[in-house]
Design a protein around this nucleic acid. Sequence first.
RNA 1: GUGGUUGUAGCUCAGCUGGUUAGAGCGCUGGUUUGUGGAUCCAGAGGUCGCCGGUUCGAACCCGGUCUUCCACCCCA
Length: 455
Amino acid sequence: MSVQKPSLPKGTRDFGPLQMARRNFILETIKDTFKLFGFQQLETPAMENLSTLTGKYGDEGDQLLFKILNSGNFLKNLEGGDVESGTSMVLPKLSEKGLRYDLTVPFARYVVMNRNDITFPFKRFQIQPVWRADRPQRGRYREFYQCDADVVGTDSLVCELEILLMIKRVFANLGITDYSIKINNRKILTGLSEVIGEKGREGELCVAIDKLDKIGWEKVQEELLQRNFEQTAIEKLEPVIHLKQSNQEKLEFLKDFLSASDIGLKGLQELEEVFDLLQTYGENEEHVDFDVVLARGLSYYTGAIFEVKVNNVSIGSVSGGGRYDDLTGVFGLDGVSGVGFSFGVDRLYDVMDELGIFPEENFDRTKVLITHFDEKGFDYGLKVLNKLRTNGVISELFPEITKIKKQFSYADKKGIPYVIVLGDDEINKGMISLKNLATGQQDSMHLEEAIDKIV
RNA sequence: GUGGUUGUAGCUCAGCUGGUUAGAGCGCUGGUUUGUGGAUCCAGAGGUCGCCGGUUCGAACCCGGUCUUCCACCCCA
């Protein structure tokens, strides 16, 4: 076999020890919050039947699904002429499984399959990788982790409240201070399209409107015109685009603006209740921003929609979610409303990296390295090692008998703060020498005393 | 998926209009110091110039393809 340079598939990454420590810090923070709010963990397979996945994310989403070639002779179902008839005809004959694209759809599948064993409302969280055959960019990967928390089986707006609370808690614990949780309601967008005389076209309206902070109102108007929206409709929309007051003021304005649309008013009412619940809970509206032009792409959202952006960084949204009234419906279980959201760990990582706010000191790392000069010290060191670990001190014995300089250098590079030196002097006296590498201070003492110092 | 961009030592990058043996800094290894790391100084190792093909007397450099990186669009965590 010829030697080949190893490489990774596009858009995937390895995580080294430092990255893992940082990722685990984020992951633990999120997990800890989910648990505190009463969510229980669930895992589903990396692969799902393609029939479970397709048609849930729109045409774009279907394109981005990774398909898994059938096992064995994957060509066996092909017939002459199939190849000429196009990929959409050939694909089902080659592939019946795919990698999951998100965690929400597999969750919906799980709920339907286990409906008799689940007590509703069902609160679950799920932290697993997902895969998208996207073209990679900064903050965009082909394999990345999502951290989902969802509640199904209730349409209580307390769920929406809890999502806001969980986001606030996670960000506070991560040390991210400058961010905003954008919240809107799909019903408001529906109402908007009704009121401006383009009923039923909120999907298109959303796609265009969503680009507002990126490309500006001028360009959005152009796009709407291209999509054959009436000039008068666009003019009617204008005051909404420029809404820049407080959450309450926006609500008041829209109550009037959407007065002709029942569904729009329903959306407003839901949103207002979420704000009320926030007050009642004893939290404020800090970081929570009613954004009338927030329109998330995923086609299954029907009520509240969320998106979280960290300010002054070059990464897109780090979290998103919303309410879906009928996601389980496609799997044959109607009337189960759900709401959930997801943190993107990889993007949170990039954000925190860019802001330089990882708390490195707290990461678990070896506290003390035991060094030695010869076999005698090595054996003595093993006993010391045992004592240290019994006392819960993260410790290592240098595994080879070699020059002390090399052992110290190892401690230095690995960022180990203390070194225990074991030579004849120490062994004879039944003591150890403890050196603090940061200060250079070295003292002879009993092991118990050293343990107290290190911990 | 569309358009552009990048690739030279472990890392960050030089390398002139194609010309002999491809360089620097940092890092690494060893020594200066045979019971002590981080600093200084000295020495050393390390590269099929992403990969494949083409043009040429001659290619890191020009051309084509391919992979990869980053960016914009699309969309999204």
